[in-house]
Design a protein around this nucleic acid. Sequence first.
DNA 1: CTGTTAGCGCTTTCAA
DNA 2: TTGAAAGCGCTAACAG
Lengths: 350, 350
Amino acid sequence: MGPTIRDIAKAANVSTAAVSYVINDKPGVSEETRLKIQRIMREMNYRPNPQARGLAAKRTGMLGLMIPDITDPFYVNVVRGVEAESNQLGYTLTLCTTHGDAERERNVAGTLTSNWVDGVIMMAYKLSPSELEKLSKHKVPIVVIDNPEVAGLIPSIMVNNTALGRTATAYLVEMGHTRIGFIHGVEGSNSSAARYEGYVQALKSHGLEPDPDLVERGDFSYEHGLAAAHRLLSLPNRPTAIFAANDQMAFGVMNAATELGLSVPEDISVIGVDDIEAAALVVPGLTTMRQPTWEIGACAVQILERLINPPEDSQDSKDAQSADASKSSVIQRVFEAELVVRGSCAPPTI
Amino acid sequence: MGPTIRDIAKAANVSTAAVSYVINDKPGVSEETRLKIQRIMREMNYRPNPQARGLAAKRTGMLGLMIPDITDPFYVNVVRGVEAESNQLGYTLTLCTTHGDAERERNVAGTLTSNWVDGVIMMAYKLSPSELEKLSKHKVPIVVIDNPEVAGLIPSIMVNNTALGRTATAYLVEMGHTRIGFIHGVEGSNSSAARYEGYVQALKSHGLEPDPDLVERGDFSYEHGLAAAHRLLSLPNRPTAIFAANDQMAFGVMNAATELGLSVPEDISVIGVDDIEAAALVVPGLTTMRQPTWEIGACAVQILERLINPPEDSQDSKDAQSADASKSSVIQRVFEAELVVRGSCAPPTI
DNA sequence: CTGTTAGCGCTTTCAA
DNA sequence: TTGAAAGCGCTAACAG
């Protein structure tokens, strides 16, 4: 157990308060004393105990991050952004995974918002909007990522998945494709639904009629992509392009094509979503929609920081109107996905 | 700010001590009182403040995990194991990444071992063994993963990378290959060096003479794998198989082969290490050496737990001899990698 | 079995 | 500019 603030104070012949001021860069200490204290702290290799600090100051210096799974590339990259930005702002990160389990989500969310951390970033999919709203009424600020259902109720960050779907589909249509297949993600996924919505919009806006036969259920897994593509590609009038709701499924499509003796992109164009590592490792590379995951993570931390330490400067604090405004309008940020062109798409040859 | 232990005590008409006992499942409270207190805690939705708890009990309930990068599949999978096991044991995880930067490693290691956590798991590559040893002299127990240099000095977990190299190479040799290329990882990597060592051993033990021309420098990246393979495959007497020190480079090899009009595995067999997601997504699948990453992470936590709460049961605590023994022999655990056979290797055709 | 009480290490008034 | 002292919420003797 290292030296305490009292040891430092004693060694420097000052009070613990003086040391505390120095630790926290607060005024009230002469330059001379400050320097002396700093020197002694260094000499004794003093590290303030974060627990005591937190207990007294009612802050922990930690941010909580709740995600379903650390394996999924989307989440991982968000985590990286969160990590980088929290470090930047001097927070330490506590990571909790829920494995998409409702009970664990509830649990983790409850613990995190009670006392543990100064703020929490959640990717929650099983908690109902009302549950989330209730949690956000507690003292610990929350930012939700990727859950459109609570946008407007709780500070949140989303990707415009409809636009994503439109962009991907339009890319294919403008290349000359008219029969474009779509493979859904897991049942109930808002992202997948929105991407489908964008797919339909793009089709219609180009004068194409969506064909229900070309739409397959999936679950975001490689295997389902493979199976769905097999069905799609065996159709009498098969599609010339397939838009899969994520890259894993897109890989299933590519391999299904190979298995059926079709080649990508000559016979069938494939586009995915996420830009997973594998997309760049294969030949042809997988064309895909990249979501600005890193930026999303960083942005979440920035919003949280503002929620934790509300900037007082903007107006006079007596400006009731602005206070009202900030209370009524919940922060909401929407990011756009970006098309990453590789080799898996080409104009149709028929 | 939720209710405190005093609120509960007041509501239950007991002392704070009684409540504390109940919280910590300690004896000294009648069943009746215990039940009443539990009921009230539930009713008031009481959550003990971890900071105060930690401050008083000198524990935090947190484990620190220091890794270079959350993107690398090896680390991520270790993290998953750590995560699962810490949850199991009731610890919360604090994640710190160092990006392979020596300064950050030093910093994070210092902070973590000062006060933050009850124990720390480190994947440290820039800290010298003596620095690490000094850190481990502090009060907070440390387990080091994947750093053979400190094995014996600090509790550590490793993968037998020499055996890994032997297994991979022997697989190729026994398939009939005699000219086998090797692509190194980044300069100075212990893992890569050990894998190379195993490669040489396997070659020799099968009566094959290692050919320096077939060994290329690399840096674990796809691009270097691609470049190295181009050189290797353009050799007058090119290898019929290539063992890359990781999967990313192995993908470089596969694609270099394609670019040169060679096919995998007919013309060239490829084997990697790590079993990254992409390995299973391509056709042919990449044959690779899988390290038991999840188990490693879980094991690290178990060791840490034992270090934090030393089991007193084994012998009488007066048994000075056993105390000495446990002090002198530092825990050390070695895992073996496993061959994952996919389609990228086949007997040579020439 | 139960209650009282003295801290844990730090922040933060409030006086000096 | 400095210091004394009162907690923050909880644990762990110790006394009853």
